[in-house]
């Protein structure tokens, strides 16, 4: 098990191996991601029952929760890549950070915007400065900060180190976002999904939500692989192997 993991780590840590196998994976992963997302969202919008308190406005959940949870997971992934980059100076780690940040920022923005739109009919306001909303806004800024560092510093190694540091430190905020609704009084409702124990949702609503979440995760993975491939092409443009693969 451990040997497989280390071999895997070294293989995918090589830009050449990564480029080759992500290229094999993506033509399958893209359609799968889009299909899963469409099934989940259409099911949630048109087929799931209405909520007995919130009516149909709750259908925003099928984009809001998947986007928010993918933004959190993406940030954790970025933090892990940052740690790997700082400790082992791995090339691919910096590339992964650069690949994760843009779509992570988009997902955080979607979570905030759809949440605000949902808040109006449900709470009577678009925005409150409570712990959940504020920490999520901070997450958007952290993503944008990592993105900016990666693109503003001309030397890729320095850019990688600065962005890695911000990625690692920002993971603390993921914990704050996650538990903010339990630690502080908040307008935001508690978690709908629970890893352990029963979820606070009937299965006719839960099924499309879980499918949408899976769809967003896959979609996120596709954009990350794609951006990582782009970055490999930029950094390895003088390499002979890349020219041969692209020919």
């Amino acid at each position: 098990m451990w040997q497989t993991l280390t071999r895997w780590y070294h293989q995918w840590g090589s830009p050449r191996y990564f480029f080759q196998y992500s290229g094999v994976l993506l033509p399958w992963l893209w359609p799968l991601a889009v299909l899963t997302l469409v099934v989940g969202v259409v099911w949630g919008l048109a087929f799931a029952p209405a909520d007995y308190q919130q009516g149909n406005s709750y259908r925003i959940i099928f984009i809001h929760v998947p986007a928010a949870s993918a933004a959190l997971l993406g940030y954790i992934a970025m933090g892990v890549a940052g740690l790997v980059g700082l400790v082992w100076r791995m090339k691919m780690a910096d590339i992964m950070i650069k690949a994760i940040a843009p779509f992570g920022a988009v997902l955080a923005a979607i979570a905030l915007i759809t949440g605000a739109i949902w808040g109006k009919p449900t709470w009577g306001t678009y925005w409150v400065w409570d712990a959940r909303l504020t920490s999520m806004l901070l997450m958007l800024f952290l993503y944008l900060g990592v993105f900016a560092l990666m693109n503003a510093i001309p030397d890729p190694r320095q850019a990688g180190r600065a962005a890695s540091l911000l990625s690692v430190v920002g993971v603390i905020n993921v914990v704050i976002v996650k538990y903010s609704v339990e630690w502080w009084q908040s307008l935001h409702q508690g978690s709908t999904l629970k890893v352990v124990g029963e979820s606070a949702m009937p299965s006719e609503m839960l099924a499309p939500l879980l499918i949408s979440m899976l769809g967003i995760y896959l979609f996120f993975a596709c954009t990350v692989l794609m951006r990582a491939r782009t970055e490999i092409m930029v950094r390895e443009r003088k390499s002979q192997w890349l020219r041969e693969v692209l020919r």
């Binding site: 009516g55 149909n56 406005s57 925003i60 984009i63 915007i113 739109i117 949902w118």
Partner: peptide, 25 residues
């Protein structure tokens, strides 16, 4: 119900943001 504007604007904005992002990539 009476929430069409909220639901569809949320999905519309999300769709545009994701589409733009993928197009740039």
């Amino acid at each position: 119900g009476k929430h069409g504007a909220y639901v569809w604007s949320a999905y519309g904005i999300s769709f545009v943001l994701v589409g733009l992002n993928v197009a740039l990539a």
